[in-house]
């Protein structure tokens, strides 16, 4: 059997550009996988269909990066969000003053968006990363 990757990185990026957070839903167990993998993250199933996620989730943890990799301008907030459909994603919390980016934001609902990858180093034209805004 020839395996064809169901939702490629480039397709995932194109989705973000159109303000769609795409993922995969497993025909076997129903779990959502986002960002995409070769198989269902929950059961390893390979019967997957592309689906749009709601783009809403809950902030689970965060940090304020103050010493950044070459090419990046600190400070900025990196966070992990649990989507309402189940998968966790990593991105940047935006639109909140840094002094309010503290333990109180854990558990808050966020809306997921995206933007061009923020770096001074050369990256692929279409490369985007996720953003989160408190709802």
């Amino acid at each position: 059997m020839i395996m064809e990757y169901k939702l490629t990185y480039n397709q995932f990026m194109q989705g973000l550009e159109q303000e769609k957070l795409l993922g995969l839903v497993c025909n076997g167990c129903g779990a959502a996988t986002c960002p995409p993998l070769g198989v269902c993250r929950a059961c390893g199933g390979q019967e997957l269909r592309v689906a749009e996620m709601s783009g809403v989730g809950t902030l689970r943890t965060f940090t304020v990066v103050r010493v950044a990799p070459e090419g990046r301008t600190p400070p900025y907030v990196v966070a992990m969000v649990e989507l309402d459909e189940g998968p966790w994603v990593m991105g940047n919390l935006e639109g909140l003053p840094l002094d309010q980016s503290n333990m109180d934001i854990i558990g808050k609902k966020v809306k997921v968006g995206s933007r061009r990858v923020q770096t001074k180093l050369p990256v692929q034209e279409n490369q985007r990363s996720l953003t989160f805004h408190l709802i």
Binding site: P35, G91, R128, S129
Partner: peptide, 20 residues
Amino acid sequence: HHESSAGITFPGVFAMAAHM
């Protein structure tokens, strides 16, 4: 593609673990 693209660093990884 989905982690370093957000500017995560190694201290950042463990910082997120500490908050959690």
